[in-house]
Nucleic acid binder design. Structure first.
Lengths: 205, 205
DNA sequence: CGCATTTGTGTACGCGTGTACACAAAAGTT
DNA sequence: AACTTTTGTGTACACGCGTACACAAATGCG
């Protein structure tokens, strides 16, 4: 069975890839047209409706794909952790690798948090919160292991994520060299947050 | 003289206001049409060209307006500084005031950093860098005054700006209550950065 | 096989778009 | 007062858009 199901999945994927292919610094998802995406995917405009209700529906699918990719990166970063010097170095390196590999997905996730429909924005925020929560747990566990607890793990993780994603968003339109500089500065900034959070957790103060 | 010049400036301003009025969470600047803006401003479509070359030109004007507003807020924050407890509290409060007062301008500046033409993005980045540089100077001066120097003032200021603007971007789609919570967390996070930066500047370490 | 379902095509529609052109009314200039 | 310049209008065009409808080809199922 499922020569048909397979093919359907395939052209669905083609539509997703087509949309991603059209996204770059100049173009936001909101400016893509249904016909444009269908054309890019080699389909008649009407065939689009066999796979998605409308462009918003496609957009939600894209957020989903991007979110899965992000979570994969997190896992990779944790695996590398054992062999690397610090969580921070490993995480930043993994993230920047991912960005270099699939910039369009990040473009979506980072740069269109503020546009689009309500459900669209909520989906993106959910993905990022997911990311933040897992980092918060990591930080807390790590702090206990090191006997150096941190202050308000969620706020700390949130700050780190904000810095990292903000930086990553800027990295999208940079040369490889500038990216390396940015990554180095990011590491410093994350260290500041880490140290500051530890300091704020110290008794007395 | 200049009954004409005045009137021209006036309708130009009308076009700018019309564009801002059309911007909200759902609508990005890139999705506005020339006709739409002209309509909102009570003008025939063609009259648009008497004031701007095209929509991109209008966009650059908007960035300019937003940037001026931002710098004004900075100055206000510095003036309040003397009467307030900390730079951080004062700055965050001033910024959030401004956001509540003119959300559309911030929507533009914060949420469309990553879309639009090259010149558009560069203009926005320039405005933010301006902001960051002035903060860096403040931090350095303050550190010397307190005998508590900070580490790499620019990187520190950059981290603070990233956090603040990231938070401010999220605040745009929040209720007043949530905003207050967010502002409180922001203050904590900025303190972390401050403390961490001071720690990193400590000799030996 | 024969019929039903699914996936995709072609045509057609009404609409909003950017913008070109010709023109009107007002303001500035001499 | 006679002119030029500036600001805005009205009409018109070709285009891309979303989507409705009728139909073709392939696949799945009895």
């Amino acid at each position: 069975m499922s020569s048909r199901t397979d093919k359907k999945q395939q052209t669905r994927q083609n539509l997703i890839d087509a949309a991603l292919g059209l996204l770059n610094q100049q173009r936001s998802f909101g400016s893509l047209s249904l016909r444009e995406v269908a054309r890019e995917a080699g389909l008649a405009p009407n065939a689009f409706y066999r796979h998605f209700d409308d462009m918003e529906d496609l957009g939600l699918a894209l957020v989903d794909v991007a979110g899965q990719g992000l979570r994969t990166v997190m896992r990779e970063a944790r695996q590398k952790l054992a062999h690397s010097q610090s969580v921070i170095d490993a995480s930043v390196a993994a993230l920047f690798d991912h960005i270099a590999r699939e910039p369009q997905l990040f473009h979506m996730l980072l740069r269109e948090q503020g546009s689009g429909s309500e459900s669209w924005r909520r989906a993106i925020r959910t993905e990022i919160r997911y990311f933040t929560n897992e980092l918060a747990e990591d930080l807390e566990r790590l702090g206990q292991a090191k006997q150096r607890p941190i202050f308000d793990p969620y706020a700390t993780a949130d700050a780190m994520v904000a810095i990292t994603f903000g930086g990553a968003g800027n990295a999208l339109s940079m040369t490889a060299d500038s990216r390396a500089e940015l990554a180095a500065r990011l590491v410093q900034q994350l260290r500041m947050i880490m140290l500051g959070s530890e300091r704020m957790a110290e008794p007395k103060a």
